[in-house]
Amino acid sequence: MTRMILAALACLATPQLLPAKEVGRIGVDWVGNDIIVEAIHDPKVAGVTCHITYFERSLIDRLSQGNWFEDPSNASIACRQTGPIIVGDIDRGRSGEDVFRERRSIVLKTLRIRRIFDAENQTLIYVAHARELTEGSAKMAVSTVPLFGDATQPTE
């Protein structure tokens, strides 16, 4: 139990890696639930922008459902080249590295975007997923950005 409390405190103390900018908001029902659209620029890969969408519950929905502190884990992602791609010092390991992280509940759940470099196919893979302290989530979305030409090759 102490380990779980320490892990929860560590999650709270961890800053968001990269700020997202809200670029759109779609109202989906009369109680005020919305789909949020945000743009995120990869901090280590110039020329790549990811757009994520996720559901944000309204106060009325929170009151009627009784779950005050949590939003759903569902998210969608699309990443595209938005300028000349320059790959910086990225993690080339099989598990990649976080590009973005945002809390989706008070303590236990975060929405993350993780970048993985597929060297064989010269492609950047971006995976949006929820990470929960107590149980995993199978809700995820993936987007890829191919790297073409000598100027876009990652630096060693």
Results as ranks from 00 to 15, higher is better:
Thr144His: 04
Met1Val: 10
Leu63Ala: 10
Asp42Gln: 12
Gly32Ser: 05
Cys11Phe: 14
Gly149Trp: 02
Gly24Ala: 04
Leu59Trp: 12
Gly88Ala: 02
Pro43His: 11
Leu124His: 03
Gly27Cys: 11
Ile85Asp: 00
Arg25Leu: 05
Asp29Ile: 03
His51Met: 09
Glu102Cys: 05
Glu156Ala: 13
Lys44Asp: 02
Val107Asp: 03
Ile26Val: 12
Gln153Thr: 00
His129Val: 02
Ile85Thr: 01
Pro84Gln: 13
Met4Pro: 12
Glu102Asn: 10
Thr53Lys: 14
Phe100Met: 04
Trp30Glu: 11
Cys11Ile: 07
Tyr54Val: 03
Ser105Pro: 06
Arg3Gly: 11
Thr134Pro: 02
Glu135Leu: 11
Cys50Arg: 05
Glu135Trp: 13
Gln16Phe: 07
Ser137Asp: 07
Asp34Leu: 08
Ile125Tyr: 09
Ala138Gln: 15
Phe100Glu: 00
Glu120Tyr: 11
Ile36Val: 10
Leu18Pro: 02
Pro146Cys: 04
Ala119Leu: 02
Val28Ala: 10
Ala39Lys: 14
Leu12Ile: 06
Thr134Gly: 08
Phe55Val: 10
Asp29Met: 08
Asn121Asp: 04
Pro154Thr: 00
Leu63Val: 10
Ile26Ser: 12
Ile35Gly: 03
Ile106Met: 15
Trp68Glu: 05
Ile113Asn: 01
Val99Arg: 01
Trp30Lys: 15
Ala78Gly: 10
Thr134Glu: 14
Glu120Asp: 09
Thr155Met: 11
Ile40His: 04
Gln153Ala: 02
Glu97Asp: 09
Glu97Cys: 07
Ala13Phe: 07
Asn74Gly: 14
His51Arg: 15
Ala78Ile: 07
Thr152His: 02
Lys21His: 15
Leu111Phe: 05
Ser143Pro: 00
Val127His: 09
Leu12Asp: 06
Val145Thr: 00
Arg115Cys: 01
Glu97Arg: 08
Ser58Ala: 02
Val99Asp: 00
Thr155Asn: 11
Ala7Met: 14
Trp30Asn: 11
Glu70Trp: 07
Pro84Asp: 12
Asp150Met: 12
Ile90Met: 04
Val99Ser: 00
Asp118Thr: 01
Gly149Ser: 04
Glu135Ser: 11
Cys11Thr: 05
Met1Asn: 15
Thr134Ile: 13
Arg62Cys: 01
Leu9Cys: 12
Ala141Asn: 11
Thr155Leu: 15
Gln65Cys: 11
Glu97Val: 06
Pro43Glu: 04
Asp98Gly: 09
Leu9Val: 11
Glu70Ile: 10
Ser95Trp: 14
Ala141Trp: 10
Ile35Ser: 07
Ala141Gln: 08
Ser73Cys: 14
Glu56Phe: 09
Ile60Leu: 13
Phe148Pro: 00
Thr14Phe: 14
His129Tyr: 15
Ala130Glu: 07
Val107Thr: 05
Arg101Thr: 07
Pro72Ser: 08
Gln65Asp: 13
Gly27Phe: 13
Ser143Ile: 02
Asp150Pro: 06
Asn67Met: 13
Gly136Thr: 05
Ser95Thr: 14
Val48Tyr: 00
Asp71Arg: 05
Gly88Met: 06
Gln122His: 06
Ile116Trp: 08
Glu102Gly: 01
Gln81Phe: 02
Cys11Lys: 14
Cys50Leu: 06
Asn74Thr: 13
Leu17Val: 09
Asp42Thr: 03
Met1Arg: 15
Thr155Ala: 12
Gln81Tyr: 03
